[in-house]
């Protein structure tokens, strides 16, 4: 571990909401938002990109901007579901020394301010498997994570991890794609908790300029009480509004935030501003939808 990283980890134990008080779960968060007629903004960044201390500030900025749930990437060397932007973020985080142990330490020390923001870990299965499924889940729970998203783990291969997550009160969030047929949608929903992640289009993560018909069709045909969050390709407030209007309970944004982090310029202000724009889009649509 780099000395920079060590210093970062030590200095991060600041005031605010700590792991033990951050009990707010994902379902509770969605219920709370639903009570107010709101949709959720779910913001994704890579833990440790470009450094652990930067991640702390980034998370605070996203929280200030109105983020409801934060997804933290644990970087993997071979992220097949990710486009160039998130791949590069993962490479930066790995180069800065991020690994599973440090990820848990970082999460545990996070300060999301006075708002309770559930934290979700997004990573690839080999990291979970190699660390030990049970050990990874207990580590996650102890660090204060509320759920896991493993994009290369379809429901068929997930039973051991799902059991472990259930035991330790973590949500295991599965994905549904435009290609997922009706029968399979049921199977996935059956095993889902927290929320279900609808992949907006065929492809990998990244930004795109408009909301496709595919996304709307998908939202229409996935019928469930489990909150539906749409991700892949969302980058601005009007897209977020459109997705919310089409029936999403949450909007997931990653690459657009990471591009700001990558630029290195006025990062925290711009992250906060983008989060606000997205959240406002969602709120606008919610009001119109009423």
């Amino acid at each position: 571990m780099s000395s920079k990283m060590e210093a970062g980890l030590r200095s991060g134990i600041g005031a605010g909401v700590k792991a033990e008080t951050r009990i707010s779960g994902i379902s509770e968060k969605f219920a709370e938002l639903k009570g107010r007629g709101e949709g959720a903004l779910i913001s994704y960044v890579m833990a440790g990109d470009p450094s652990p201390e930067a991640t702390r500030d980034i998370v605070s900025a996203l929280a200030r901007g109105g983020t409801d749930i934060i997804e933290l990437g644990l970087p993997f060397s071979d992220p097949v579901a990710d486009g160039p932007t998130i791949q590069a973020a993962g490479q930066r985080a790995l180069a800065a020394g991020m690994d599973t142990e440090h990820f848990f330490e970082l999460v545990e020390g996070l300060d999301t301010g006075i708002v309770r923001i559930p934290l979700v870990c997004m990573t690839y299965f080999n990291l979970v498997f190699r660390y030990g499924i049970e050990k990874f889940v207990t580590g996650s729970a102890k660090a204060g994570l509320s759920g896991l998203i493993i994009p290369d783990l379809p429901v068929e291969e997930a039973s051991e991890l799902r059991e472990s997550c259930e035991k330790h009160g973590l949500d295991l969030i599965f994905l549904i794609a435009p290609t997922t047929p009706g029968e399979r949608v049921k199977k996935v929903l059956d095993r889902s908790s927290g929320f279900v992640y609808l992949v907006s289009r065929l492809g990998v993560t990244g930004t795109s300029s408009k909301v496709s018909g595919t996304t709307k069709e998908l939202l229409a045909r996935v019928e469930t009480d489990i909150p539906k969050a749409v991700g892949f390709g969302v980058s601005n407030g009007s897209q977020a509004a459109e997705i919310r209007k089409a029936g999403a309970d949450g909007v997931i944004v990653g690459s657009a935030f990471i591009k700001i982090i990558e630029s290195g310029k006025n990062v925290n202000e711009r992250l906060e501003a983008l989060a606000k724009e997205l959240k406002n889009g969602i709120l606008e649509a919610s009001r119109k939808g009423e």
Binding site: A81, D152, P154, E156, T179, T180, R184, V188
Partner: peptide, 20 residues
């Protein structure tokens, strides 16, 4: 039967590919 060879094999891919 499920694409397993003992404990090896399987299908660890993004959901988009499962139908394919």
């Amino acid at each position: 039967a499920k694409g397993k060879y003992g404990k090896y094999g399987g299908q660890y891919v993004p959901e988009v590919l499962m139908p394919a």
